[in-house]
Design a protein around this nucleic acid. Sequence first.
DNA 1: CGACCATTTGACTTTAATCAAAGATTGTGG
DNA 2: CCACAATCTTTGATTAAAGTCAAATGGTCG
Lengths: 241, 241
Amino acid sequence: MQTTLSPSPSFTRAAWREARLARSSRPAAEPAVATFERTGQIANYPRGKTVIEEGKPALKVFRVVGGALRSVRVLADGRRHITQFLLPGDFFGFTHESEYPYTVEAAADTIIVHYSRRAFESLLEENPKAGRSFLNVLSKELAAAQNHLVLLGRKSAEERLANFLLTLADTMARDAKRQPTSTELPMNRSDIADYLGLTIETVSRLLTRLRQRNIIDLPSNHAVVFRDRQALEVLSQAGAE
Amino acid sequence: MQTTLSPSPSFTRAAWREARLARSSRPAAEPAVATFERTGQIANYPRGKTVIEEGKPALKVFRVVGGALRSVRVLADGRRHITQFLLPGDFFGFTHESEYPYTVEAAADTIIVHYSRRAFESLLEENPKAGRSFLNVLSKELAAAQNHLVLLGRKSAEERLANFLLTLADTMARDAKRQPTSTELPMNRSDIADYLGLTIETVSRLLTRLRQRNIIDLPSNHAVVFRDRQALEVLSQAGAE
DNA sequence: CGACCATTTGACTTTAATCAAAGATTGTGG
DNA sequence: CCACAATCTTTGATTAAAGTCAAATGGTCG
């Protein structure tokens, strides 16, 4: 099950696949999309601000430059679920519908670039390469969503949290060569809970427990240090097959 | 919250959106894709047969003609999750990777059309309309996956099952004008459980309970009749917002 | 400083899982 | 076509994991 290519000996092949997917799921730049990049307009959103709202006309597409956002769905009785966190490099706002199918809010102070949907659509028509690039972006998003389906459907609370911490760290350090040994947590406990299908109390208890076991350190509410990454990888049950 | 356009008075706007999404998420035919359709080769797969396998080279793309398949991911310790059921009209096997990221098995006896990946790729390059069509297909798949994330993350066992029965019925009767009053269940209890993040026992108990409350009827293990669709809609908590 | 908000911790409850066993259905070979 | 094996489904008793309710602690920002 092990491979000499793996820097972390306990990593199975499947775990590797998952880690790779997670990291590559938010590409720094698909080539043709990069061209487009220059025409966008930049904007700042403070923590808590709504960027797009479910049901409103989908007139713009966005790309995250800095900070973090949450894509939110709320049930009639108030239960909330976060379908994804949007981090630097991620696109959002693209849909086949005329209205946005979800709400996006700034989970921390955030910088975003936005483009008109019309400009985006005509780019797709004129430049098949761009269309193909974007197909890849969506295909990667879909793969990430499917990983998350498995996490929500079949993993324990502890596995979910361990998985989340590792994936977040890898994503935040997308461009880095070395595996990160710590990560910022731009979102609060409540956001993490709603992303992992847990309650805030469970998230808090699990973090405390990981700290007590010397697997992580919590220097502040918005940072995690990996003291034993390998233990975390084992707990995360990353593997398939 | 109600609208006169809704045939079912208890349906909220959000519930409608969800139902519409679910139904449209597997389009009968995106125009440019239909052209492509003719070049494919047809094949039969008996129940249980594996069509594609996680990790194997992704050389073909597929479209379901008849029957039902399951897209499966298995954790190291044997826990299984079904990320989606593939029903007539659905595509599968498309990925940006060189290998398939999931396994697909026939959940019932199935008919499939398959195309070479190369032919498919060159179609995308030559025909921007086809690319755009396929972007829509992926975008709809993504929307469906996000609905399912909310279901797994925040809905109770009963809500999940009610939701599943309604969505399945609507999808199976994609082309019908009237809302279906019954549906075939091409997959077994175990597949349903692994799709909804539950156990087979819980699925069975819930079905029995719905029958005892006269909300559904179970004329056979592979069929459901809706005796009180509205009650089922209420239980499914379809709504957002 | 003090109010407000986020986080942690504790006691208890609930939901769905697990373990176990009894029916029911399906498929197969004689 | 029947009989029996194998598989699938249902039902019951018990357990475990995570949720709920409640309160204390800690941090941040006017």
